[in-house]
Design a protein around this nucleic acid. Structure first.
Lengths: 152, 152
DNA sequence: ACCAAATAGTACGACATCGAACCAAAGTCA
DNA sequence: TGACTTTGGTTCGATGTCGTACTATTTGGT
């Protein structure tokens, strides 16, 4: 298998696994929550409150337009609160509400429970071993994207 | 990191890499072709002609409704031809047209060229090493999905 | 042979995502 | 200070994907 084919195969597999895992999440998340909403809640929880929409969009690797939409959904459900950014009039800051925190916990519970049956089938060591590779690939693609859209 | 967290992290990383690679493809595929169309053309080329839409949908891990749409797009561009299935009145068969073949080659050329700059940054051995893991994960999720929707 | 259940594909409505165009606030530089 | 550029977010239109409901054909049991 030459390099190009390997790379195609690799990304093809990545794409399919991603689709399957997202489908899994979408099926098991409570109340019609979409995996992207879930990911955003988790990000807010991990990174902490007061982040700007753009920062979240970059972290999630979606466009800012998409993040506007995602945050609007979360805000309508009162899972996050969006305030003006005191240090920049163009910007906003995003906060997880208590309801958002609770919802995240509940969602994690549901997903974890649903995952219990399959989780045991995964080879923990193998997953752990491929993580650095994935992260490196992510960084490379990310840099390429930034470079493309930024300069050039 | 406990098992659940590892799995979450793993799928999160997979999702992001998938998004980035799809975005990369979408940016570099000619004539507004979407990565899913590209993947379908590649599948038809690899697996051979005369496959049914459902078989393609399963291989691509999308719903049959989605495949109906994808094939309609490809057919409108005359990259595939869809005929009745002689052995099953409900079914169809899909064929790559000469134009479809040519388009696929051109697309591969474009993408490969665009990828040349980043391809050298990938650690070939690492990608190769994580492929089996990805394939195993795919199989597990796939089986779970089939089980869920089929029985239960 | 007939009727029920399963199956392949389509139609429809909902929604996530994207790119491009746009607006408003900062920043920059003369 | 004032104009040009950059930057954070939103709006808009287009499109890919999904789930559900539906149609037509096939399969299977009696």
């Amino acid at each position: 298998m030459d390099d190009d084919t390997l790379i195609f195969t690799f990304f093809n597999e990545i794409g399919i696994v991603s689709q399957l895992s997202q489908a899994f999440l979408n099926r098991h998340l409570p109340d019609g929550l979409h995996s992207s909403h879930f990911a955003t809640l988790n990000h807010l929880y991990r990174v902490g409150n007061g982040t700007t929409p753009l920062a979240i969009a970059n972290a999630m690797q979606v466009t800012k337009a998409t993040m506007t939409h995602t945050l609007a959904v979360l805000e309508k459900r009162e899972l996050v609160e969006i305030r003006a950014n005191p240090s920049d009039g163009r910007s906003k800051t995003v906060f997880l509400t208590p309801a958002g925190r609770a919802f995240r916990l509940a969602a994690i519970g549901d997903v974890t429970a649903a995952m219990a049956t399959v989780a045991s089938l995964f080879d923990r060591a193998a997953l752990e071993a491929s993580l650095p590779t994935l992260q490196r690939v992510r960084k490379i693609l990310d840099a390429e994207r930034a470079h493309r859209s930024g300069g050039d």
